[in-house]
Design a protein around this nucleic acid. Structure first.
Lengths: 350, 350
DNA sequence: AACGTTACCGACAACGATTGCGTAAATATT
DNA sequence: AATATTTACGCAATCGTTGTCGGTAACGTT
C-alpha cells in the first residue's frame, strides 16, 4: 500500500512491478494481463490496463532484449553519411525498419578498413539483430564480417558487397548502367572516353569497368588502359588523379566518372582549367545528386535507385532476422539504373 | 566440468557464466577479475583474462543497460536525413558519440509533427540516454518533449529549437547570417528583395526574417510583406509559393531563400521561366550544398557550420548525460555563419 | 459426496552482469 | 597460543520481464 518513491538517476518509468504493487497482484499476472493472455479475468485485465495507463507504463525494451536475446535494432555501416547516395539509402532503410518496429543504428567507416572493423565489433557486441553494410573503399578482405556471419548474424550487403560471403545482396545494375552510359557517349561521337573509377577493390568498380569495356568493344573502339584511372576517396587524391588524366598526351573527349564526389571534383578542375563542357570535354557520372540538373552545365547521369536499394536491403535483412527457418536461399537483387541525358554530354554536332 | 552446448537462436556469445563454469569459479569472481578488482588474486585474474580471451568474451551491453539503467546510445531526430545540412550534422554527431563510446540511433520526422511525436515516444521507451533534436517544420508545441525533459531526459536542440524548453541549444547565427546576406544584396544595388522562408513556426525562420528586416531598415528600404513568403516542405507547396511570388505585380530583383530545397526549387522555376540569374533576378540561399559553387550560376550562400553544429550539440548532450551534478547552466551556442559570394548575385552594373 | 474441470492467479527461475555482504583460510599481531 | 586482520572468494539480490510450474478456488459431473 505504501507508495515507494525511489529516485533513480535518470527518468523514472513505471515498471510492471509498480503496477503489481499498486494493484496488489503478482508481476506475472500483470504481465499476462498486459499481453492479453486468455487466462486472466477480463475484469482484472481492465484494472491492470487502466493502472498501466495511469502510471504511463511502457515496457522496458532493454529487459525484453535481455530475455529474448534480441535488440530490435539493426546496424547500418556506410562509408559516409554525408553522401547523397548513402543518405538516400539510409532514408529507405529507416522507412522500412520504422514500420517493422526496428531501430536503426548508424556507423560510418569513412572509407577506412580499420574503422569498418571497429564498427563491426561494436555492432556485434551491441547485439544488433542484423547488419546492413556497404563496404569501405579500403576493404579488401572480409574476415571480420565472415566471422560474424558464420556465428549467425544476418548480414545484407547493399551497393558494395563481397563475393566471399554468401548472403543477400542488393545492387544497382552497374554493368548495364556503365554500358548504357558509355554507349551514350559513343553515340554522341566520342571515341576517346576516360573512365574515372573508385577503389579497384570494390565490386561496383569492376562491374562498371566491365560495362564500360563491353560498350567500347561493341562499337569497335579499342580499350586504352591509360584512360582508366582509379582513386580512393581523399579529395587530394581525386584531384591528383584527375590532373594526371588531363595531362596525358592524348586527351580524352569524354570522362565518365563513377561517384558523386569524383564527378564534382572533375567538374571543378575542368572549370578551373577553362575546359568547356561539353564542347571540349563531355562529362557524365554515376550520380545520385538531386541537383544534377541544376549544375552548370546540367549533368548527364546514370542514376541509381538509392532509396529503393535501402528499402529492399532492409526488407531482406528483416526477413532474415525474423525468419525462424534457416533457409539460405540467398538472392542478389539487381535494380535497374536510369540514364538521364542532360547538357554535359550534349553533342556539338547537333 | 560438463561443457554445456546450448544452442541459442541467434549468435552464441560467451557469457561470464561460461567462463565461471570453465574455470570452476563463481560469476562474481570472474566479473571482478575482468574489471581488475583489487580483491582478486593476480594469478586468478590472469587465468580469467586468458579464458575470456580464448572464449572471445564480450560483455553484454544489454545486461549492463538493464542494470545501470542506461543504454549508451543517444537518439537523433531530424526532419530528413537526405538533406545536406542534416547529414553533415549527423556526421558530426556520430564522430563525437563514437569516440565517447555512444551509439547513434536515427529517426526522421519527415517534417511531420505526428511522426516527431511518435519518434519521441520510441526514443523514450527505448531508454536512450539523451536526445538531439531539430524540430519538424510542423511542430508548433512541444509538450511531447517537455514531458520527457521534466522526467529527466537530457535534450539538446540543434538548429531548430523551441523556447519553451530550457536546455542547451546549438544554432547558427541566423540573424547575422540573414542580415549579412540581405545587406550583400542591397549593396549589389537591389531594393526589392524577396525572402522565401520556411515554416513560420520555426525559430530559424523568425531569426532570419529579423535579420532580413534589420538589414532593410538599416539601409532605409521599406519592408514589404508581400515579399516574404512562407512555405512548408512539400515540393508542390514550394513551387506554388514561388510561382505566386513571381506572379506579383511588383517583381522582386532578388530572392533570398533560406533552405537548400527552397533554393533548388527556386532555381529550377526561374530557369524554367527563362529568368536570367543574376541579370533579371539575383538569387542566394542559406545553404549547405557542397555543390553550390558548381551550380549554374554558382550559388551565393550563407553557409552554416553543419558539421560543427552536430559536434557541439553532441558534446553538450553527452556532458549532460554524464554529469552527475544537476547543474542546469544551460547555454545557447551560436555559431557564426559565413557569406560566400558567387555568381548568382553578381551585380550587372559592375 | 467424491471426483474432475475450468478459470484465475502467484511463486520462482531465468536472461547477463554487478555488488554488498558474508566467510573460510591464510597470515599477522599481541 | 590466542586473537586480529587480511586475502580471496562465494552467495544472493538486483535490474524488468516472461515462461514454467504449481496451486486454489468455484463449478459441474457422476
Amino acid at each position: 500500500m505504501k507508495n515507494c518513491t525511489k529516485t533513480r538517476l535518470a527518468l523514472e518509468t513505471a515498471t510492471i512491478k509498480d503496477i503489481a504493487k499498486a494493484l496488489n497482484l503478482s508481476t506475472s499476472t500483470v504481465s499476462r494481463a498486459l499481453r492479453g493472455s486468455y487466462e486472466i479475468n477480463p475484469e482484472t485485465k481492465r484494472i491492470v490496463l487502466e493502472c498501466a495507463e495511469k502510471l504511463n507504463y511502457r515496457p522496458n525494451p532493454i529487459a525484453l532484449s535481455l530475455k529474448e536475446n534480441r535488440s530490435r535494432a539493426i546496424g547500418v555501416v556506410v562509408p559516409e553519411i554525408d553522401n547523397p547516395f548513402f543518405s538516400q539509402a539510409i532514408n529507405g532503410i529507416e522507412a522500412i525498419a520504422y514500420n517493422r518496429g526496428y531501430h536503426v543504428v548508424i556507423f560510418q567507416s569513412h572509407e577506412s578498413y580499420d574503422r569498418e572493423v571497429v564498427n563491426i565489433q561494436h555492432l556485434a557486441s551491441r547485439r544488433v539483430d542484423g547488419v546492413l553494410i556497404s563496404l569501405s573503399g579500403q576493404t579488401t578482405h572480409v574476415e571480420h564480417l565472415k566471422e560474424l556471419h558464420t556465428k549467425g548474424m544476418p548480414i545484407v550487403f547493399f551497393d558494395r558487397f563481397s563475393d566471399e560471403i554468401n548472403t543477400h545482396k542488393v545492387v544497382a545494375d552497374n554493368y548495364q548502367g556503365a554500358f548504357e552510359g558509355t554507349e551514350h557517349l559513343i553515340n554522341s561521337g566520342k571515341k576517346h572516353i576516360a573512365h574515372l573509377a573508385a577503389s579497384p577493390t570494390l565490386s561496383i568498380t569492376r562491374e562498371r569497368i566491365s560495362g564500360y569495356k563491353a560498350a567500347l568493344e561493341k562499337h569497335g573502339i579499342p580499350y586504352n588502359e591509360d584512360f582508366v584511372k582509379y582513386c580512393n576517396f581523399s579529395i587530394e587524391d581525386m584531384e591528383n588523379v584527375i590532373d594526371e588524366l588531363l595531362s596525358q598526351p592524348i586527351l580524352p573527349e569524354a570522362i565518365f566518372t563513377v561517384s558523386d564526389r569524383l564527378a564534382m571534383a572533375c567538374l571543378k578542375i575542368l572549370k578551373k582549367r577553362n575546359i568547356r563542357i561539353p564542347e571540349d570535354m563531355a562529362l557524365m557520372g554515376f550520380s545520385n545528386l538531386k541537383v544534377a540538373e541544376l549544375l552548370s552545365p546540367s549533368f548527364t547521369s546514370v542514376i541509381q535507385p538509392a532509396l529503393e536499394m535501402g528499402q529492399r536491403a532492409a526488407e531482406l535483412l528483416l526477413d532474415l532476422v525474423e525468419k525462424k527457418s534457416k533457409s539460405p536461399a540467398y538472392q542478389t537483387v539487381t535494380l535497374p539504373t536510369e540514364l538521364v541525358i542532360r547538357d554535359s554530354t550534349k553533342t556539338a554536332s547537333k
